Amino acid sequence: MSQTVELVLPDDQREELIDALKEELVPSIAKASTETFTRERYKNKKDICMYLGIGNNTFDKYVAAHVPSVTFGKKSIYDCKAVDAYMKQCERFY
Rank of each mutant, 00 (worst) to 15 (best):
I29Y: 01
K74P: 11
Y86R: 09
L9C: 05
S69T: 07
H66N: 03
E16R: 12
T34G: 10
Q89D: 14
V8S: 14
D19E: 11
M87W: 01
K46P: 00
V26D: 01
D19G: 14
T71L: 05
Y86Q: 08
F37L: 00
A82S: 02
E35A: 07
D84F: 02
S28I: 08
E35D: 06
I48C: 01
S33E: 14
V83F: 00
A65F: 11
L9A: 13
A30F: 01
H66W: 08
N44F: 04
K45V: 05
Q89Y: 12
K45L: 11
A32D: 13
T4C: 13
V83R: 00
I29L: 03
S28A: 12
A64I: 06
G53Y: 03
C49R: 06
L17H: 03
G55H: 04
K88P: 15
L52S: 05
L17E: 14
V67G: 15
D84S: 01
G55P: 05
K45P: 09
C49N: 03
N56S: 14
D79V: 11
I48D: 02
D19P: 15
G73N: 10
R14K: 04
N56L: 08
H66M: 03
F72P: 10
P27L: 01
K81S: 08
N57R: 08
D60K: 09
G55M: 06
P10W: 15
M87T: 05
C80I: 07
S28Y: 06
R41K: 06
V5G: 12
L9Q: 07
G73Q: 00
K22M: 14
K46S: 10
G73R: 02
M87F: 01
S28M: 04
Y78C: 04
P10Y: 15
D12V: 09
Q89E: 11
L25A: 09
A32M: 14
F37C: 04
V70R: 07
V70Q: 14
S69L: 12
C49K: 05
V67A: 06
K45H: 05
C49Y: 01
Y42D: 04
Q89G: 11
V26M: 08
C90V: 11
E24M: 10
F37W: 00
A65C: 12
Y62A: 01
L9G: 07
T38W: 02
Y62K: 03
P68F: 02
G73F: 02
E15T: 06
L17I: 11
Q13V: 15
K22E: 10
Y51C: 04
P10F: 15
R39K: 14
E23L: 09
C80S: 06
V5A: 10
N57L: 08
T58K: 12
Y78F: 07
G55L: 12
I18G: 11
E40Q: 12
